[in-house]
Design a protein around this nucleic acid. Sequence first.
DNA 1: TTGAAAGCGCTAACAG
DNA 2: CTGTTAGCGCTTTCAA
Lengths: 333, 333
Amino acid sequence: MSDVARAAGVSIATVSRALANAGAGVSPELRERVLAAVAELDYHPNHLPRNMRARSSRTIGLVISDIENPYFTAVVRGAEDVAHRRGYTMVLANTDEDAEREALCLQTMAAERAAGVVVASTGQHSAGVRRLISTGIPVVALDRRIAGANVDTVVVDNETAAYEAVRHLASLGHRRVAMVGGPGKVSAISEREAGYERAVRDHGLERGLLWHGDLREAGGRRTTLELLREPERPTAIFSVNSMSTIGVLHALRDLGLRAPDDVSVIGFDDIPTGDLLDPPLSVVRQPTYQLGARAAELLLRRVQEPDAPVQEVVLAASLVLRPSTGPVPRPND
Amino acid sequence: MSDVARAAGVSIATVSRALANAGAGVSPELRERVLAAVAELDYHPNHLPRNMRARSSRTIGLVISDIENPYFTAVVRGAEDVAHRRGYTMVLANTDEDAEREALCLQTMAAERAAGVVVASTGQHSAGVRRLISTGIPVVALDRRIAGANVDTVVVDNETAAYEAVRHLASLGHRRVAMVGGPGKVSAISEREAGYERAVRDHGLERGLLWHGDLREAGGRRTTLELLREPERPTAIFSVNSMSTIGVLHALRDLGLRAPDDVSVIGFDDIPTGDLLDPPLSVVRQPTYQLGARAAELLLRRVQEPDAPVQEVVLAASLVLRPSTGPVPRPND
DNA sequence: TTGAAAGCGCTAACAG
DNA sequence: CTGTTAGCGCTTTCAA
């Protein structure tokens, strides 16, 4: 920068000002000379000192648990779009539901003085998140609530959405509706399970059919295989998230069963090819892009107004019915 | 940090050393005192000055064109795993095939002094990439080559893979094999098209069936609808990437056609649910995770050895045959 | 409108 | 092994 100043015959302060927001406070003439010198010398601005001085970078962190899950993929897109539009850069970290990895990522983001962090935490009581909050860096909880912390939150109404899915199955006549769930330590999952259980109670469905998988393909598949090995097979399966649902479908194929003829299937989260599957899959669709975009917006608002009241955004999910859910199959004759 | 130093009764240099790599060069006793003071004061390290001093951050950039494309999703995971393992943070940017947005992202990464950048460029002659290279920041080209630049590159053998896909269709008896292609300005696409055309020549297939879409669902769908409106319909379709293929499948459904009974379909890039589609989809499968991981490795190697010889890594893609490709349908009778 | 100068909070060279 | 000290390259007072 001092080279540029010398070449333009001005001080470095003038160069700095000429390069800052549209060169306010610099005479057009000097500005021209500075820009010419910048071009001449092929000067590349360096944000590192600027960040240091500002004690913050124009970067937001996004911490998710599975980048290959299309739910998070869409969330990433929404958040990145907003960040980009507002002149922020997005740092992405993938935790694979590993609390230690999450803590490490958050620590790094804190050390890099991210302007703020959107986090789908591995657990409601994550030590990593608590530590991050204690640094004073703005945090937005996405998809998964943070227990006992007063942070902005963006979620869908998981309980209601799950209830509606199971209610639909009940309305088709199903009485043995199983749920392939997940680990209960994240709120989104436990809320879906709660919605399922409320529907089971309200509609007098059979109890004891809530099984816990992980949130991935392998767990969904394994759990379903075990579930269908039971003497009295469920007539419908509600699956807790998209990866898990893919596992359910694989398990059905493994056993040579078809939906909805043998078992009805409905999954939480839409899948990009859900309508092209065999059979097309009924799902609970979340407004994924919106979730990511709203989370980033909430975060950037808080970056600008640290003392604004804490907000909780709850979006609605919707039922998308396709052929994988049908009436109760009649027993083989 | 000076607070910590005061609390521990040492100099800030000692604090710095105690906090640096496992506290080498500091007596255990002082180290203890420093760590105690850090805990006591709830001190959060700040990397910003460190980065500034080092004139670089431990961050690598990854610039892709579509985060919702499962190909890139897997690439991201591979790259992020490697980066994380080596203590780097990953900055992700999505360009949507927009050269201007790409240039902006790369400029930001240069200004933030990323240690290096992996880029799937929007074009072989991207001005943004050229400028980035001129800053001296290490660059690795992923999936798409950079024309006239001497940079490390990670790609699959697109030409051969496309050739094999079309050859397979020819071996099933197809003579009217269409290709739903893409914009020719990225190497991966033009190479696939070249492989298609070589196969067309070698096997005496009908010419003039290479149509260009974009690389997204909408383009694949539109192009296919037009293609199938032709008086003499192709008996097989080869689609250039995963999103495009989903478009092809939607178009078939729109027209009430089925693969492979009406048209055979094979797509470049596997889809997570490819085996669950109706019918299960034949694809050219790329080693996506490996591509991302290798790109990150190549980049970090160059960060450490800027003068190492430039490498080009070419991985093989493989044909995954499922029911969507079958023999030539007999004309309706 | 411009320039001089004082940091931002670390790291590392150097001296003890 | 420890402390003193000189920056890293910007931004931003403050004074002219």
